[in-house]
């Protein structure tokens, strides 16, 4: 489904952020990318989605191939095609503040997929119901709690019916109780067979839903494997340090 090969990325004038990262996520798989701050996790997601051009390697989404150095204008069609297959939930959410929750949800289906307003709203309301947000359809984003906003952001991405979704730090800004609400939604999605790559620095989601775990440190994948193995018998010191920190 998604295949990342030997990805390298260096910001102009800065250090290398990704130094040859590879990973493959099959249909229905749930990959969790874990690692300390600054390890390149978020950049990896942005490269897969084409928001960030990379210097070497390639990203494959189905039969689509993103080469190094994509140009947002020249390669607009390719990027649009990739993004329709791969949705993205941003760490900062980026809900549209001038639109109600429902408008946020149907903007994509209506203007990108060309759905009729009624059809798009029906799907959106159904999803809101599943996420326990049916009564917030007419609310503005800023009137929602952090957890509610996070779920709206996920719903907005899901309504585009992407083949896979990329989720960046879904719980980092939330208090533990709220984080649990959001995790519950993500776990349910995973059980429903939603292909997903989630970046996080906590193991809780990995334990409950991951089919594969990748540990990133300093732009390099230091360890990967099924969650049982990586989380129970970590081989690399970075993984061990992360696990220690979680227990503390």
């Amino acid at each position: 489904m998604i295949e990342v090969r030997a990805l390298e990325k260096r910001f102009v004038g800065g250090p290398a952020v990704l130094r040859g990262v590879s990973l493959a996520v099959a249909k229905g798989a749930v990959a969790v990318v874990i690692g300390p701050s600054g390890s390149g996790k978020s950049t990896l997601l942005r490269c897969i989605n084409g928001l960030e051009p990379f210097d070497a390697g390639e990203v494959r989404v189905g039969e689509l191939v993103l080469p190094p150095g994509v140009d947002p204008k020249k390669d607009a069609r390719l990027l649009q095609a990739v993004r329709r297959r791969v949705g993205m939930v941003f760490q900062a959410l980026h809900l549209f503040p001038h639109m109600s929750v429902l408008e946020n949800l149907v903007a994509g289906p209506r203007h990108v997929l060309g759905e009729a307003r009624e059809a798009a709203e029906a799907r959106a309301l159904e999803l809101l119901l599943r996420m326990n947000l049916r009564d917030k359809a007419r609310a503005m984003p800023r009137d929602l709690s952090g957890g509610q906003q996070q779920r709206v952001a996920i719903a907005r991405t899901l309504l585009m019916r992407p083949d896979a979704i990329l989720v960046d730090e879904p719980t980092s800004a939330l208090d533990p109780a709220t984080a649990n609400e959001v995790l519950a939604v993500m776990v349910e999605l995973a059980r429903d067979g939603q292909t997903m790559i989630a970046v996080t620095h906590s193991f809780r989601f990995a334990r409950r839903a991951a089919t594969q775990v990748h540990v990133l440190a300093d732009g390099v994948e230091v360890e990967s494997g099924p969650p049982e193995r990586v989380l129970e018998a970590p081989e690399h010191e970075v993984t061990r340090a992360l696990l220690e920190a979680e227990r503390a």
Partner: peptide, 8 residues
């Protein structure tokens, strides 16, 4: 970015 990520 969010709008682009939606495929707009």
């Amino acid at each position: 970015e969010a709008a682009l990520a939606l495929g707009m």
